[in-house]
Nucleic acid binder design. Structure first.
Lengths: 177, 177
DNA sequence: ATGGCCATGTAAGATGTTACATGATTTA
DNA sequence: TAAATCATGTAACATCTTACATGGCCAT
């Protein structure tokens, strides 16, 4: 009962809580405009999601004119705020703190399938890509303190991945001689 | 055309490449037994996935007795090996190197919704969970060099997250006075 | 006034999950 | 030999994605 919020549902409720009532499209824009978004903000995700949240009583909608057209304006309910707080606050389930999935790590699990002499090129390509992405992150000028704090976490995560691959490359070079 | 492999497809092909022909159940076991698995190894994922791979010519199956029952034994094909190499080796697409999703970071994006006085408790709960998970990682005794290298990446990622939250807590303490 | 983009959705498909069914094998 | 577990799937459902439809708005 009282099913927990998914990540996407938490983000949508969080958006409504911070910005006030919004149309589904405005919620989509927040995802479409976010540089770090893991989700595409696709209409087929957001519209049904808001309907589900309304069926659960976490948001309420009313028809409202946006320009000359009618659209549904969604607002978070008191119950929605309670659920959002439960999503945001401890206790944190194990999958929140466990190691996030990393597609490069997935590939490292199969490194033995790659001939030794090709591995250095793989490490270098990964390092180049990781550094490029880190630069892009650091070039972001986030406005709010929330984004700033989250961005710091992303930067630290990227530095850790770079240090990891740098170590792999050193180890490979040592092994090869 | 020649659709790229998904993460799960890459893992399954990698397993078949390393271990040789296997039944769908044996592939499932690899996921079920893996401590770090992001995937559940559910039957409903693995069985149809192998059928899709066969339809694409990347694996081939034959009926074979496993004990007294018949089951499909899947083997990777030469085309499957080529595709697996393309999945494993550079060039790496942007989403491989971009910051992996972190549910704690998602929540930090909404930290402003939490009263200041409750944030320290949040940071402490996160730190406790992160440290517990790091200990569990370090307690693992992985056998192969692949797992050892991947595990090092996971440990570094966890240390980075811990350092990040430790910083957030210090910052919060400084702000509060 | 019209061609292109913005806003509001809907539909179809991909890919995962949990739950179920069922026969073989092991264990108490 | 009965119960539990293993092995082999299938089915129903959840939740994303991309692609489509459609009407309003804006710039030329």
């Amino acid at each position: 009962m009282t099913q927990a919020l998914s990540e996407l549902e938490g983000c949508v409720l969080g958006h409504l809580s911070r910005r006030g009532p919004a149309t589904a499209y405005a919620v989509r824009r927040a995802f479409l405009d976010s540089p770090s978004s893991h989700w595409s903000g696709s209409a087929g995700a957001v519209y049904p999601l808001l309907e589900r949240l309304e069926a659960r009583g976490l948001v309420r909608s009313r028809k409202a004119p946006t320009g000359a057209r009618q659209a549904w304006l969604y607002a978070i309910t008191p119950g929605g705020r309670r659920r959002l707080r439960a999503w945001l606050l401890p206790p944190f389930s194990a999958d929140l703190v466990s190691t996030p999935q990393d597609p490069l790590r997935t590939r490292v699990h199969f490194l033995s399938l790659i001939p030794e002499r090709q591995r250095a090129a793989l490490f270098d390509a990964a390092l180049a890509g990781l550094r490029r992405h880190l630069s892009a992150l650091q070039a972001l000028r986030k406005v709010g303190p929330d984004d700033r704090r989250a961005l710091r976490g992303a930067v630290l995560a990227m530095r850790a991945r770079i240090a990891w691959f740098a170590g792999l490359r050193r180890e490979g070079a040592r092994t090869r001689r």
